[in-house]
Design a protein around this nucleic acid. Structure first.
Length: 316
DNA sequence: TTCCAGGGTAACG
DNA sequence: CGTTACCATGGA
């Protein structure tokens, strides 16, 4: 990872020290298209854990026990420009944010093998060219990815975003900057103390309320964490650990492996969106069966997660 | 009104 | 092991 501190300055606006920016650059790999990633991040107007404005992403983050707000935008020469807003974090924190961003956009992955495979694949051929440079946009926070996956179970994505927004704006923290609020996903210690009725009031189903609170308790008490999963030897062990959780089935387990742990081979094969995307790409009258999809996916081996996100992208 | 959404659990063979 | 009813809600 190369980070280049360019310069630092503060400026005055109306004779008031408005803000201090710490500018840093994030290097980007080959086969990376910032605007394709932006399009994915911008797919719902109801999104609340980041904001996109004028081709720039804004995100609030709690990291190393501190909250920071940053902005990320495309820059020339294969770089992204990172600005910290409202604070000027120390070096340690800046490095942590840079690491977060590399993970968020899956920057440290060589996609050459994926594109080589996809170019010759009947299902992926078109989408891999059309959305070339799109990365697996991850949800690095373990509690957040579990909540988001559970919220999204068996409901339309639009409603899932509505529920997430209610959860975040009711139980999360916010950073105010300028005239805008930037929200942080609720902490597990907050959700673990809730009664199901408090989530039912936000129109969560009773089941989902129970799942979320149960998982929040496990994360809060420390008996479940991302580090714990990462320490396991095999993906199968990771999967088994996730499947033990109430509310986590095959789809959710694979979704977490893909979106949080960044496993490019994780594959939610039963996903309805994936089925619809394949149906459309192949111009079929009906959705393929899971068995057919597994057959199609044989040539995707090792890149199932990337195949999935490119196909999901084609739905919007 | 019916059917489908980026599913999961529990009960049943 | 595979199948099935049930869960809850919003859109088309």
């Amino acid at each position: 990872m190369i980070s280049i501190p360019i310069f630092r300055w503060s400026y005055k606006l109306n004779n008031y020290k408005f803000s201090t920016f710490m500018i840093q650059m994030v290097t980007t790999p080959r086969a990376f298209n910032f605007y394709e990633c932006l399009a994915f991040l911008n797919r719902s107007a109801l999104e609340c854990t980041h904001k996109i404005e004028d081709q720039k992403v804004y995100k609030a983050l709690r990291i190393n026990g501190k909250t920071v707000l940053f902005r990320l935008q495309e820059d020339h020469l294969g770089l992204m420009k990172l600005d910290f807003l409202g604070t000027s974090p120390g070096k340690h924190l800046r490095v942590a944010v840079l690491r977060y961003i590399r993970e968020w956009f899956d920057l440290d992955r060589d996609l050459a093998p994926f594109f080589k495979m996809a170019a010759a694949d009947p299902v992926l051929k078109t989408v891999s060219r059309k959305y070339y440079g799109l990365r697996l946009i991850r949800i690095p926070d373990f509690f957040e990815v579990l909540c988001w996956a559970i919220i999204g179970q068996q409901i339309q994505l639009r409603f899932a975003y509505t529920l997430k927004r209610r959860l975040v704006e009711r139980f999360g923290e916010k950073i105010r900057y300028g005239s805008q609020d930037y929200w942080l996903f609720p902490a597990p210690e907050v959700i673990s103390g809730l009664q199901p009725a408090q989530l039912l009031a936000l129109q969560f189903s009773r089941r989902k309320a129970e799942y979320l609170i149960g998982i929040a308790r496990r994360v809060d008490e420390g008996s479940l964490s991302k580090a714990m999963l990462q320490a396991l030897e095999t993906v199968e062990e990771q999967r088994r650990t996730l499947l033990k959780l109430r509310g986590v089935g095959e789809w959710t387990a694979d979704y977490v492996l893909m979106k949080c742990l960044g496993n490019p081979a994780a594959f939610p094969a039963a996903d309805v969106g994936l089925h619809n995307a394949i149906k459309r790409v192949l111009n079929r009258p009906v959705k393929p069966t899971v068995a057919e999809i597994r057959e199609m996916a044989r040539s995707w081996e090792g890149w199932e997660a990337y195949a999935t996100i490119y196909l999901w992208r084609s739905l919007v």
